[in-house]
Amino acid sequence: MAAGSENTAAYYIQHHLQNLTFGNHPENGWSLAHSAEEAREMGFWAIHLDTMGWSIAMGLLFIWLFRKAGRMATTGVPGPLQNVVEMVIEFIELTVRGAFHGRNPVIAPLALTLFVWIFLMNLLKLVPVDYAPQLFSRLGIEYMKLVPTTDPNATLGMAIGVFALIIYYSLKVKGVGGFAKELSLTPFNHWSLIPFNLVMEIIGLLVKPLSLGLRLFGNMFAGEVIFILIALLPFWVMWTLNVPWAIFHILVITLQAFIFTVLSVVYLSQAHEHH
């Protein structure tokens, strides 16, 4: 009985942490993975449909909400939606003003998009862990992992986007020569230490997107695992742990969205600075 329940629990956890994967399976060809092993066997050429779908849905929700607020915007007393949107924009503007020292009109909208999008994706975590899988299994879909930010593909994807912008603005502001000089002559400004500097700076550069993506993924994934573990408890005590953890996560999801945003802005600010 003990072994059986352990198996069920292991299966339950594994099932909840499995994305809906569509990919090129060596035997089945292009198809949906029916198990974690199949998904693993697909290798790189696979796509997480749930991650894509929910992140795009949240992105569209963000665009729709803010566009609606923008269309209805008045110079008079703002309505409830406009009020919220204005507050978020003011908050982001304040943050960017404090963290970004260059002059670039792209940064503030980028920060707003990152913050609101990540916040909305994280927000899906407050939906009870069984709702989406149960609902979609009724509809005949085997796996459904609701929160895109618990998938490293989503968080690292956003981090790579930020990284591309870091490289682009570094080259644009400093020029190829300036960027190369920064990589090779800092922190030690001597020709004999160029290889050492290069190794240090390139590691430092590559760590930026990695830390950005993995921090968000790690926090969200760990929180999700705890939620799933709590779901294994008997149903009548579940709420004693689930409710405090969910309340705590109101803070976590906001904070993680904010940290990702601020660090992106700081990295981009560094890309604009001359040494």
């Binding site: 099932h15 407050l126 939906v127 009870p128 149960q134 779901a231 149903f235 579940m238 689930n242």
Partner: peptide, 25 residues
């Protein structure tokens, strides 16, 4: 994947969480 009491437990927890949010957040 079968429906069991977990779903009800989660619904209870979710209801309490929503109540908490309405009341205090």
């Amino acid at each position: 994947m079968n429906i069991n009491m977990t779903l009800i437990g989660q619904t209870i927890a979710f209801a309490i969480f929503v109540w908490f949010c309405i009341k205090y957040v």
